[in-house]
Design a protein around this nucleic acid. Sequence first.
RNA 1: GGUCCCGUAGUUCAAUGGAUAGAAUAGAAGUUUCCUAAACUUUAGAUGCAGGUUCGAUUCCUGCCGGGACCA
Length: 595
Amino acid sequence: MNLESVLRQEISNAVNSVFGQEAPALQVQATNQEFEGSHTLVCFPLTRLSKKGPEETATMIGDYLVANTTAVSKFNVVKGFLNLTISESTWIELFSSMYANKNFGTLPSNGKEIMVEYSSPNTNKPLHLGHLRNNFLGWSVSEIYKDCGYNVHKVQIINDRGIHICKSMAAWKLFGNGETPESSGLKGDKLVGKYYVEFDKRYKAEIAELVEKGSTKELAEKEAPIMKAAVDMLQKWEHHDTGTVDLWRTMNGWVYSGFEATYKQMGVDFEKLYYESETYLLGKEEVMKGLEQGVFFQKEDGSIWVDLTDDGLDQKLLLRADGTSVYMTQDIGTAILRFRDFPNISRQVYTVGNEQEYHFKVLFLILAKLGYEWAKECYHLSYGMVDLPSGKMKSREGTVVDADDLMDEMIAEAEKQTRELGKIDELGDGEAKELFEMIGLGALKYFLLKVDPKKRMLFDPEESIQLQGHTGPFIQYAHARIKAILRKGNELGTTVQIDDFKNVTTIEPVEQELLYMLSNYESKLEEAAREYSPSIIANFAYELAKSYNQFYQMIPIFNEADPSRLKFRIAFSSVVATTLEKSMRLLGIRVPERM
RNA sequence: GGUCCCGUAGUUCAAUGGAUAGAAUAGAAGUUUCCUAAACUUUAGAUGCAGGUUCGAUUCCUGCCGGGACCA
């Protein structure tokens, strides 16, 4: 039972009988703290129907609701706002149904399938802070859709071919002395990343040297030996040269095992991985087909383009004159392949930074022009960049924040603060370690997910390790305290039956506030899915935890003389705990039993 | 040159066109006989500028200023 939708229906009926007209879209919102009531109907828009002032309109509806419904027991009118007080029996009934419903907070299957792509790294560099926002966001949106009843396929596309990986390969071959992850003790992705940096360093030095000898800068950029080596490798790779392909495979293998460890720590997973080396040829085919069909056109130099000037965009290159593909070519191939692999998906979501908005606009247009019906069901889940206090992250300037390092730092900080509070006296080493991870990663995930994805956000390492205030650990802590209450309830042998609630006749305002929030959880879930925004869940969980803390402070549960009230409070504490667990799970944050 | 995004307390974030714009931090002042003080209570502090749309604008529209991204 959803209280708000029941209310909407009742109000709709009321408007119908009082004013004799069909009610328009109703504005129902939470009642402002300072007024009595929990739900408020905004009556200004209804004055057109009633042909009366806002106050009178509100009063008429209020009178009708009190007289003709069981849910509304009282009302008051402030200006055009009709504040409704829900009867206590309705609250109890609502709560009983939530308590009895084992699937509260999970919507039944709707038979729809969607695909969510996220992460999608290059194989020449380790994952960094931006990838963390991407992964947490994509993973969380997937889980939100699952709880909304969708069958979700999590995938990524790995950019495993091209000049960038050849740069790492060239540097490794020339200067690596056969170094491996085993011999160096470095994670595979870190090792390959090291040679990517090495390439850049050598390349710059070689250019400088050539310029010194009188070459122009442009020529030097082409003639630098290490660049020639990389380009040579790319050509050999495209012609399936065995040695080059073997090296490529080996080095990518190192990267994948490194990534795997990072994903494991992040707590994200994928159903299927796509590799550009396996999709770019399909992309080329599709471009050639499009050329035949006249969707694309060829320039004199042989390059292939699409003209999007009618759509308010410009011309876009799809295949270079030398026949090599660009990102767009590969993405065309990948999209088509995915709809072949999963014919039942009704939507494809791309979790990619907002600097690629133009790219995806173009991609979806091209797919539509190629005649693919599903193109309009493709969605770019775009998110803002993560800024550092020092400015933008730049790998060349060494101002990237490495994903592994950051996670380790967060865990170490959680350990430090937990030890300072002296909270781990009873825990074994294994349990303590697990707790530090839950807290450290919880803080990090919450920090990155609480912000509206569309918005650019600031990551201040100094402030982000804070575990007080509007943070993940705040919610984890509130949850742990509820668990302590439930444990004590158990020790006292308190058993709760639904029938016990029937004897409860009054509800405190704090309790009502919590019930109101709980009753809204499922609509928040739907909203989060609709908006592709885990931040809605994150903020919900925070508000719930905060309200519970206030309740916790105000009302000493075990001093309650009335046993049915005690049971009621224990029961609704347990629903708050499971709802917190549920919403935090959607963010990928685990909640400890104690902390 | 063109397209798009963003400007809210000192700082980091909220606010389906609705009530006196919410939190958190940092600042000031309090609360530990009672289930875990990573908590709670009190206090001070903000919509870039100028117009427009209307009962009502942080939100929608126009212009400007400031920050960012993308396309050739």
